[in-house]
Nucleic acid binder design. Structure first.
Lengths: 328, 328
DNA sequence: CTGTTAGCGCCTTCAT
DNA sequence: ATGAAGGCGCTAACAG
């Protein structure tokens, strides 16, 4: 293993200087810097993370706390993860996935062990009993999601209220006098802010605009869940109303249901869905979508996390504006 | 932070003894062991991974190398990840996700840095130019997948040939005289062993049984990809043939296509698909499936990895038997 | 601007 | 069966 000592010897400087060249926490003459850098390259030097961390530096790893249970759709997580890894790498860090199923214990271990510099927490619930414990850990944290009480932890999320507004407005614009919102199976409105805020805000907007409103949450995933929507859908189709769908999966099932029932989306009723741009490629027909911009959310989350890791104090909640695209 | 020194003081022993109690690499009297263990519990001691690693011990982290590009379906990865994390935790280790997109560089860094004790590699290609480099790293590795030349690295995978046999046999059993295999979009037969072996084996079995055979790989994902299957499907339906589908996604699209074309799976033709047990809940109709047993594969992969980490030499390829379930 | 030095927490070889 | 002591590779004072 090539160590900083080897590099130092080769560059004709002290080991400490090598360290300072890397951290930049002390002025070093350009000439020395250059010699050290060359020596590092020539030897293929890679600093040992464990030694660095032990000596008080950063670990170069951020943790991502994710639920892995049956109700979690990892596919929805992908756009987040991709950006998080990209941004982390830009800052010289790696990403570690931490399963949230063992509650806060796993996180606590990691923090104590010194495995991570900070943590991004996904799947925040509206009433989330893990948060107090997480706040106690006193390590850099960013919550991705919305919660009632964040215990002073910084949060970031897409602006769900705005998502709802865009959806309802779009449907009404198209001429719907009555709309239905299809929510998120397995994530009841009470537990997760998305469903909660999305649903309630949609209801408010609908009321303001004077159109009929109904919120429906499929009791289970897939076909059986969407089948329960049948009556509502028929009802909406009868009066040329509108439907807003919360998840890509539900959308797909809904489209299948439409074929089965002989109802034509875009003709018999108006349709808007929440899904990430690009997903439209897989659909049989064009569907207007509101992109919850996981890329922007992640990018900013990582930035907030590293700000903390670098010693800044970050607090408060931020909301990122979603993006609507008309495709019909 | 509670250190081994603190524990030692409280237990009235030396710090070295605390260390030996943990590693078990030296005989310690039961009485001392007990006192030390109690002290650890009372103080909530968690050994510092970085110090341990620096001093030559294990890190307690295994890496999972995964592709994160557009063609990768993270949802398919979930059943693997869940089990890997579970098994890793049983052995006191955490799991780190490593994006494979930067080629082997990321892995090389991690290995040199001392971030992981070993690595599981996913998405192995038939001709995979990363493998030689990985073998050179000389760290514990298990490949999950099948490849032409594994450079001596141990591999594990579901037995794809057996998957193909089960699928074709089932269809022929049902009475099909002609069958079509719908492959994996974005993963051309040449690159990935699954498509390669699955397709070729299915062809062989079909030949042996004397039934017509056609292999089709959708040119893209989703509806547009499956639409290209239309003619084949109509053809198969005309003669009451059979269709074997490689991915859950393709299956879903295919079912949609059936509704659109007015073809009834199970009546107009026989259908078998490769998907994990449990997925049937989301389907409109029952479809016979062959479970590629990601749970069994992962469990064994982790076992093989830890055997290496513990100093054993592990080589060769293993194949796990898939499981067919008749649901129609 | 640079070198010297003292740890960080743990494992392990010597001693006893 | 246990202690004492020397690193592992790096960071961050402390000295010039």
């Amino acid at each position: 293993m090539v160590t900083a000592k080897d590099v130092a010897k080769r560059a004709g400087v002290s080991q400490a200087t090598v360290s300072y060249v890397m951290s930049g926490s002390r002025p070093i003459s350009e000439a020395t810097k250059k010699r050290v850098r060359e020596a590092m390259d020539e030897l293929g030097y890679v600093p040992n993370i464990n030694a660095r961390s032990l000596a008080g530096g950063k670990v170069g790893v951020i943790g991502v706390l994710v639920r892995m249970d049956e109700n979690t759709d990892l596919a929805e997580l992908r756009p987040f993860l991709v950006v998080i890894m990209e941004e982390a790498r830009k800052r010289g860090s790696s990403v570690m996935l931490v399963p949230a199923d063992e509650g806060i214990e796993g996180l606590r271990r990691m923090a104590r062990q010194g495995l991570v510099d900070g943590v991004l927490v996904f799947d925040i619930e509206w009433h989330d009993d893990r948060l107090e414990g997480i706040a106690d850990l006193k390590i850099p944290v960013v919550l991705i999601g919305t919660t009632e009480n964040s215990y002073g932890l910084p949060c970031i999320d897409v602006d769900y209220r705005r998502v709802a507004q865009l959806a309802v407005n779009r449907l009404v614009e198209e001429g719907a006098h009555k709309i239905a919102v299809i929510g998120d199976w397995g994530r009841s409105s009470d537990r997760f802010a998305f469903s909660k805020l999305f649903g309630s805000e949609a209801r408010v907007v609908a009321q303001v605009l004077g159109v009929g409103f109904e919120l429906f949450i499929p009791p289970e995933r897939g076909w059986r869940g969407i089948w329960a929507v049948k009556d509502i859908l028929l009802d909406i189709a009868k009066c040329h109303g509108g439907v807003a769908v919360r998840t890509p999966h539900a959308l797909q099932s809904l489209l299948e249901l439409c074929v089965e029932l002989g109802i034509r989306p875009g003709k018999d009723f108006y349709l808007v869905a929440v899904y990430v741009d690009g997903f439209e490629d897989t659909l049989r027909i064009p569907v207007d979508n509101i992109d919850p911009v996981p890329d922007l959310v992640s990018r900013q989350a990582v930035a907030m996390l590293f700000d903390q890791i670098d010693g800044q104090v970050v607090t408060g909640s931020r909301f990122v504006a979603p993006r609507i695209t008309v495709r019909s």
